[in-house]
Simulated assay, not measured.
Amino acid sequence: MKIETIAIHAGNYIDPSSKAVIQPIVMATTFERDEDGGFSSGYQYSRSANPNRAALEQVVAQLENGVEAAAFSSGNAAGMSVFQSLEPGTHIIAPDDMYHGLRNQLKTLFAGILEFDFIDVNDTDILKSHIKQNTGIIWIETPSNPLLKITDIKKVVNVAREHNIKVVCDNTFATPICQQPLTLGADLVMHSSTKYFGGHSDLMGGVLVTAEKSDWWEKIRNVQTMGGAVPSPMDCYYLTRSIKTLPYRVKGHVHNAQLLARFLQNHPRVEEVMYPGLASHPQYEIAETQMSYPGAMISFTLKGGEQEAKKVVNALKIFIQATSLGGVESLIEHRASVEGPDTKTPLNLLRVSVGLEHIDDLTADLEQAMA
């Protein structure tokens, strides 16, 4: 099936009792045993499995061309389950431009438990020089948050294979509509399903998808079920419902982002536009090779420094100044303020999640704010 068809049908089943064409929401926390004490339904307790979570995991696994998925209560919970599955002392190589929530998770919650280096993973020489005997995973994030760097997935995978190291890719910015890391050799894909999967800024979730069932994947599954950081049946239902429109929403987001990036690139008050769909992007050719679409996240820097950037944000009428991304509404934020005092993000940088409003209204709003 094509990806649009998978999005609609892979997470849905017809209820056998009512014949409802949309799956019911199963709110039960526990399930009746058989006469012999077994669980022929496959469900015992909702922390370990629930029909709505099973449906969500099934559709996401198929969208990413994986064999199985595991859903979590947030993107951070999904990422943390990967770190929790590793043996103490495992070394992680991560990108120097990375979502600050997971970077801070490593630096605070796993300090002294895991080892980690934050480097330019796209530089093969630097990458190879940081590999140790105890290196367990190379974590990549492409496009990256917030500088929109593109990592050559195949190149990193080739290096990892030489040393029997697993590659995990945060695919949140791209979604499986724009990029499918497992088909490029990655071992595991992560999403904050709060973002484009949810698509309406009204629920939280995270998900991991594996290329193969392995002992490592079973450890991650154990973290999910024993730790219990799982999404509610209601959240799973709404995520599965939102995914039905994901391919068409993402295409609309991308269309607007491409036009908005060109508008910003030609604006006299803009210093630099970071968007992999522009030929001026330093990894444009890599993006062209491994992405179906360049995504809908844009970062740009303004002439005049931090104060000018904050003035523009506060003058906008349609763009909402808020953290997060992937909703139908356009969001903008002064990213360095969100990341805290140790941020390496330029102080004049604004990060934009391009929504589905009419592009003329979005460009007019930016025009008046920068006037």
Rank of each mutant, 00 (worst) to 15 (best):
R221Q: 13
Y237D: 04
L246V: 07
G185T: 12
M98L: 14
V167W: 03
T183Q: 09
I22K: 13
L259R: 09
A70S: 14
I8T: 06
L182W: 10
L366K: 05
D15L: 03
Y248E: 15
I286M: 04
A70T: 11
V156C: 06
L278M: 11
K155G: 01
D117M: 02
N104R: 11
G112I: 13
E212W: 09
D152I: 02
A94R: 01
E141L: 08
K166P: 03
D235L: 10
M297C: 09
I165W: 05
F300N: 01
L239C: 09
E4R: 11
A7V: 03
E141A: 10
T29M: 06
A69P: 05
T301V: 07
T108P: 00
M297H: 10
G206T: 09
N256Y: 06
H253E: 12
Y237L: 06
P268D: 10
D170N: 15
I320D: 05
N76E: 11
K19T: 08
L184I: 09
T301N: 05
I150L: 00
Q368Y: 14
K107I: 12
K344N: 14
G79N: 07
L102E: 01
A369Y: 05
I150C: 01
E141H: 12
A28M: 04
L260G: 00
G66F: 07
P282G: 08
M234H: 10
V328H: 09
P346F: 13
I6S: 00
S299Q: 02
Q265N: 08
T245C: 13
R53H: 04
V157K: 08
D360R: 12
A7F: 02
L246S: 04
E35C: 11
T345W: 08
A309T: 04
A54P: 00
L56Y: 11
M190I: 14
S85R: 07
S201D: 15
A229I: 11
E212G: 02
D202Q: 12
E4I: 11
A287T: 09
G199I: 03
D15V: 07
E35P: 11
V21I: 15
I22R: 14
L356A: 02
F83R: 02
L102V: 09
S40C: 14
Y248S: 15
P231M: 11
G340N: 04
P88E: 08
G295E: 02
T108V: 12
N104G: 10
I92R: 03
E35N: 14
N52K: 01
M291D: 02
V328R: 08
L203V: 05
D365N: 08
A28Y: 05
L260W: 03
D360F: 14
N348M: 07
R53C: 01
H9E: 14
L325T: 04
Y248Q: 14
E35A: 15
V230C: 00
V156H: 03
A61G: 06
S299H: 02
I113M: 11
